[in-house]
Write a protein that binds this DNA or RNA. Structure first.
Lengths: 225, 225, 225, 225
DNA sequence: CATGAATGAGTGTTCATTCAT
DNA sequence: TATGAATGAACACTCATTCAT
């Protein structure tokens, strides 16, 4: 009727799914899968409940989409950054830990582990995807970095494969702490984790744990009798 | 077999609650809170659904009881063991990490973090209890140990308060890995964590990261320009 | 029959609540609050159980709505009729008693007192509403009428305030009799109340009781020694 | 063991049923049949829930017993008193109305009509019993009295059969008012019924309505044109 | 495309009734 | 006789899913 080519009030139908996923991430992250109602997701996304079913065949599929769409772009980014950095291994490790910790503590993304942990039992296919997409790639990355440091003479020889998850652990702890428990710490006296300071400390201990010692010592600790 | 004429009957008020809690732990750990039906808990405990309500006023209270009853005795045990060990700090730290990792990977207890992570948002009082009972005590314990090592000249001076959670992180990762993701690793090629080897590696890196270096080096890392 | 292509379908938000209330009144009146199942109300209203919850947040609220929606329009009608009648007081009283008795005995409305009586203890807010809406207004109406008759010299001076409920009593008895006990009178020999004849008799005795006596007598009876 | 012949702490087993009925009356009167839990009755009666079933085969039978045991002795008393009174009919009527009103307003018995009204639909046999025991006898009594008054020249000729329930109506209203609605009257301004004053007023109007008029008037009112 | 009224299977909770002791 | 732990049928209420408009 009017000549207006693209009335601004009409949300492009291609934007819809993302808005729904965003709303769903917010609510799933807060309440978990079962305790989140499609009614609420629809309301938050500004659509009707029926509309959800135009884009996602079921609540379960929406949930999977939320997790995957939240992860995939960030995985790509992380891989890209990694491939380029050619500096001293310690410096690279430091950057990566700092970057991931910031992401875990400061963005919505940090809530993903919580979601996957909670629902892995009920969503096997989601768990399988997640294992491949996150821990597998993450562990492998840390392992390659450590092996590179050892090969370049920066690090002591260590069991890189076994030790890789240790470098992922503080990131996981950070994410869960910020998104799960910290909100329930009663004001004064409760435990506190300051992301920057925590990660500084981790880097200090972990890199020192890897670095070659000036004199002998080090290496795999001898077994106790 | 036994001479007892009717030994199977009327276990009485004493045994019942524990049997119910045990059945509930099993199911909650597998399916989460919402996806576990009281019918199933009752069946597994060998009682009727109504009987659950003789001992627990609601599903929520049963859930809280499950978490608390699973944790409390083990917390007591852990504290007791700690108070006695007077050996070299490094050795104590090693023992503790080994012990906790074994517990996380090898017992039902390892499923508790998963449960709490999944439901903290819906059970604030449970989350508050957990924060006080587990991370607060755990972090404090690692902090005291590190400070003791520093004071006795075994360890470099490090930011003990900030770094304490780093020692808890591999335990958490271990627990979640074993009870959440590992079951979904597709046979060949997926990531694997062998508890013993993983913890050996962690101890190696972490203790080396704490130990005093024979010469210069070490200490808090200088900030990058 | 009708040309309407699909007239039976989707009656829409407007008609539904009233149909539900009507069905509920029927069943509550017959079985009482507790013994009426939402399933049955839904079936009788031709909707599903879930639909009830689109319009009423709980069984209790539905119950309150039933009582209020049954009463309110009729209260309005009654008040309007009253305000207009300017004839001889005795005639007005006669008309009102006759009208109310007819309503009590001949319409669904007569079941309301039974419902309120049965559930007042469990629905305080309903009881409060009812007290204000029915007895308070009703007693006040009879009192005004009596006082008007006295002022106009038609009636003896009587304690109008105290005596007003007496005029409501046969209406109440009529309603309860018809909707509660009469169905249980075993055929021959049981007590019978014929509404018309009963109300004629009531009017005869009550109006004679109010009317001025041609000679002395009357008035407040002297106390017995 | 001890020689004590009848230890006073042992409630005679014959007292039990009455204690249970008393406790049940109290609770049924307050909450109605469905909303009263056997648990509560047992607790109030000082016995265990199982014990109830030693004396009453079901909740329904207990309910019937409560109503019947509350009514029967009082019915007997009322009949006896009536048979003896040979004074002026007006005086007898006055006494009876006063006595019944006092009972309705001042004793537990006044709650019975409420119970029967509430549950007649669900307890046909109870309703049948009640109809025979209370309204049938009550209406007949008032009818005989009126007829006696007419025969003795004290009263106008009226339709005694039709009018009898009118004399029961204020008693019913009184009972329901005191036991159902009055507790929900909000302090100031709500309707109030003072038993003594109300009954005085009723007696005044009703007896005047029956009494012979000194001159003409009276009699069955002529039909309106 | 979008809506939202309608559905009904599923589940937590209650409570009258039973029965081994 | 008395107990009270145990039962399980019954029911209110929720919410993912459908579909006529």
């Amino acid at each position: 009727m009017t000549a207006a080519p693209k009335p601004r009030w009409r949300r492009r139908k291609d934007a819809r799914p993302d808005e729904i996923v965003a709303a769903a991430l917010e609510l799933f992250a807060t309440h978990g899968f079962a305790a989140t109602r499609l009614d609420d997701i629809a309301r938050r996304a500004g659509v009707s409940k029926g509309t959800l079913y135009l884009y996602f065949p079921s609540k379960e599929e929406l949930f999977k989409s939320v997790v995957k769409e939240a992860l995939l772009p960030n995985l790509a980014k992380a891989e890209a950054r990694l491939a380029e950095d050619k500096g001293p291994t310690a410096r690279v490790l430091e950057d990566i830990l700092g970057g991931l910790a910031g992401m875990a503590a400061g963005t919505r993304l940090g809530a993903i582990p919580k979601l996957v942990i909670a629902e892995a039992g009920n969503f096997p296919s989601l768990a399988e995807f997640y294992v491949e997409a996150v821990p597998k790639r993450g562990f492998a990355m840390f392992r390659r970095l450590i092996e590179r440091g050892v090969a370049q003479g920066e690090f002591r020889p260590v069991d890189a494969e076994a030790v890789a998850p240790l470098f992922a652990a503080p990131i996981l702890l950070m994410a869960l702490w910020k998104h799960v428990l910290e909100p329930h710490v009663k004001s004064k006296g409760g435990p506190v984790i300051e992301p920057k300071r925590f990660i500084q400390g981790c880097i200090d201990v972990l890199l020192n744990g890897l670095r070659k010692r000036p004199a002998g010592g080090g290496g795999q600790k001898e077994k106790r009798p």
